[in-house]
């Protein structure tokens, strides 16, 4: 009887361990669209942060950026020629001239084009 209980506990332990290991190794990607934004600001202000000082603290953070669409290329929209967002869904992405708010993950500053880049972005409905 005692043996059986020990065996049961060991088995449960192994299964549980395997489960947590699996969960760790194959954990899900971040869901940027469901995360709370660390900061909300205008496109030009976000760019200015990178121009002034590297703005390392904002890398990899979820941000909400407000601005006017000044360019559309592939799956991306550019706001005020300062921030380029790669959208997850391009449906209803809007047209040039539209004022929008975009939530995305800030991946850094591209000094070739002098723009800040976001990925995994979604357009959030303006209130």
């Amino acid at each position: 009887m005692k043996k059986k209980i020990v065996l049961l506990i060991v088995t449960l332990g192994l299964v549980g361990g395997a489960y947590f290991l699996y969960k760790y190794l194959y954990k899900d990607h971040r869901e940027i669209s469901n995360e709370e934004a660390a900061v909300e600001l205008a496109a030009a202000d976000l760019k200015q942060m990178f121009v002034d000082n590297d703005a390392q603290e904002i890398l990899n953070k979820t941000v909400i950026v407000n601005g006017t669409i000044t360019g559309i290329e592939g799956q991306t929209i550019t706001l005020d020629e300062a921030v380029q967002s790669a959208l997850l869904i391009t449906e209803n992405a809007g047209n040039e001239g539209d004022i929008v708010a975009v939530k995305g993950r800030c991946i850094g500053y591209d000094d070739l084009f002098e723009i800040v880049k976001l990925d995994q972005s979604t357009i959030i409905p303006t209130k």
């Binding site: 990899n60 991946i107 850094g108 591209d110």
Partner: peptide, 25 residues
């Protein structure tokens, strides 16, 4: 990575590309 910036100056053949490392999925 599908958001890599790149410029080619056709008169001189100068080429530059910049990838933000965090954008690799």
């Amino acid at each position: 990575h599908s958001n890599v910036g790149s410029i080619l100056k056709s008169s001189t053949g100068e080429f530059a590309a910049l990838a933000l490392v965090k954008g690799f999925r």
